[in-house]
Simulated assay, not measured.
Amino acid sequence: MRNAIKAGLGALAFWAVLSAPALADCARSDYLGHSFTTCTARAGDDLRLFLYMDEAKVYGNFTAIDDALARDGKKLAFAMNGGMYHPDRRPVGLYIEDGNELARIVTSAGPGNFGMLPNGVFCVDDTGFTLVESRAFAQSPPACRHATQSGPMLVIDGQFHPKFLADSDSRLIRNGVGVSSDGRQAAFVITNTPVNLFEFARFFRDHLDMPQALYIDGNVSRLHAPAIRRSDWGGLLGPVIGKVIDARGPAQ
């Protein structure tokens, strides 16, 4: 009964963010002594992945993407780093941008967080969002307009990744994405205080009521959210994921 009440309160908190038209796409919240910022995308939003501005040069930062979008009268409502990448900014795993597959899926175990199976693929399609375990995705790929692979999965069908340790002292600023049970909402979360992977997974499952969630990255995690007066700086990024809106409209 206590768990049911806690899950219900988490769902109410998340849906309150979704249903309040006066709020920006991004809002800050505290949970179990940690601080998080959550940015929400809904089915029908113009959510895109960005990597190369031309064949040889990556965007690398939020300003470069906004400058490119401005030529079409568009801008970023919010954006964050959208997947792990090699030193030359190539994606580590599957990467699909505007229907074009630029990097192939990786299904083998390996070092680091990416190779801590199960990992997964976040997919944007015509009806909303899906988050699929990578091997299942490889066997039956959905039609993704945009997709990025990362790892590990934080929450899999409502269960935590089996290798997470509640008392792990590996705490970083991290970011990730969760998908609602109906696939109509995606929550992009960045931590404002260092957390371990178990604590991050709890935020998605127990606070946001997300049955599927995927770790994107740590240390390099950055958020661009002009409506809340935040735009993080740092070294060049690889893939970036962001919600695009009309430059003349409000960022909400």
Results as ranks from 00 to 15, higher is better:
Thr107Tyr: 05
Phe129Lys: 08
Val177Asp: 01
Thr40Phe: 15
Gly249Met: 08
Ile190His: 01
Tyr85Trp: 15
Ile241Arg: 04
Glu55Ile: 13
His161Trp: 02
Val244Asp: 14
His207Ile: 08
His146Pro: 02
Arg205Ile: 08
Thr38Arg: 00
Lys163Glu: 15
Gly183Val: 07
Pro162Val: 09
Met153Tyr: 01
Gly93Ala: 10
Val244Cys: 08
Ala147Asp: 04
Gly235Gln: 07
Arg89Met: 07
Arg184Phe: 07
Gly235Leu: 04
Leu18Val: 13
Ala201Ser: 11
Lys243Trp: 03
Phe188His: 09
Ser168Arg: 07
Thr63Met: 06
His86Trp: 15
Leu94His: 04
Gln159Leu: 09
Leu49Cys: 12
Asn81Glu: 08
Arg222Lys: 13
Leu32Met: 12
Pro141Val: 10
Gly218Ile: 14
Glu55Met: 12
Leu47Ala: 06
Ile96Cys: 03
Arg229Leu: 15
Glu101Val: 15
Asn196Gly: 07
Arg202His: 04
Phe188Glu: 14
Ala68Ser: 13
Leu47Phe: 14
Tyr52Pro: 02
Ile245Pro: 06
Tyr85His: 11
Ile228Tyr: 02
Gly10Trp: 00
Ala143Glu: 09
Asn119Thr: 10
Ala186Cys: 01
Ala227Phe: 00
Asn196Pro: 08
Lys57Ile: 15
Ser29Asp: 08
Asn100His: 09
Asp209Glu: 06
Met80Pro: 03
Thr191Lys: 01
Asp30Ser: 14
Leu131Trp: 02
Phe36Arg: 09
Ile245Cys: 06
Thr63Trp: 07
Gly33Asp: 12
Val92Phe: 10
Tyr215Met: 13
Val58Asn: 04
Thr40His: 11
Pro111Glu: 14
Met80His: 04
Ser108Leu: 02
Asp54Ile: 01
Gly176Gln: 01
Gly178Lys: 08
Asn192Leu: 12
Ser221Asn: 08
Leu117His: 12
Ala22Met: 03
Ala11Ser: 07
Pro211Tyr: 02
Ala138Cys: 05
Leu9Tyr: 02
Ala4Phe: 06
Gly73His: 05
Val92Gly: 00
Leu49Met: 14
Phe36Thr: 11
Asn3Val: 05
Asp67Ala: 10
Ser180Glu: 00
Phe137Asn: 09
Lys163Ala: 13
Gly99Tyr: 07
Ala24Val: 06
Ala247Pro: 10
Arg205Leu: 13
Pro162Ile: 15
Gln212Leu: 11
Ser168Glu: 11
Ala227Pro: 00
